[in-house]
């Protein structure tokens, strides 16, 4: 059981690190998904360990919502790309001048 815990914690941390250090927006979005995937695994794991199925419900909703989030994120990236012709965060900074 604990190997799954480490796996999901690893996935979560990998996503968190990726989103902090990656420089292109698509990869950041992928890392975000990785993070949520890790958490979903964790929920299933705890659901199995405790014997309550509430958490499995949570995972289904998480999958739906993260799909929405990625759809919105991608469309925002496209909207920005149309104006700036780039998806690298270094070239985009306007607001924090």
């Amino acid at each position: 059981m604990s190997i799954y815990y480490y796996l999901s914690a690893f996935l979560f941390c990998l996503g968190l690190l990726g989103i902090t250090f990656k420089k292109d927006l698509i990869s950041m979005l992928l890392c975000l998904e990785l993070m949520l995937g890790g958490v979903a695994l964790l929920f299933i794991l705890f659901s199995k360990a405790t014997g309550f199925i509430d958490a499995q419900l949570m995972v289904i909703f998480m999958m739906i919502i993260s799909a929405c989030e990625v759809a919105i994120g991608l469309s925002l990236i496209i909207a920005l790309y149309r104006k700036k012709q780039t998806i690298y965060t270094n070239d985009i900074k306007i607001l924090t001048e």
């Binding site: 925002l76 990236i77 920005l80």
Partner: peptide, 22 residues
């Protein structure tokens, strides 16, 4: 876009906490 990325990360972290509370 900034809002989306920050929001995604923070809700991910929140879920991580929630899973442990569960």
């Amino acid at each position: 876009l900034k809002y989306a990325l920050y929001g995604g990360v923070s809700s991910g972290i929140m879920l991580f906490g929630m899973s442990h509370i569960f």
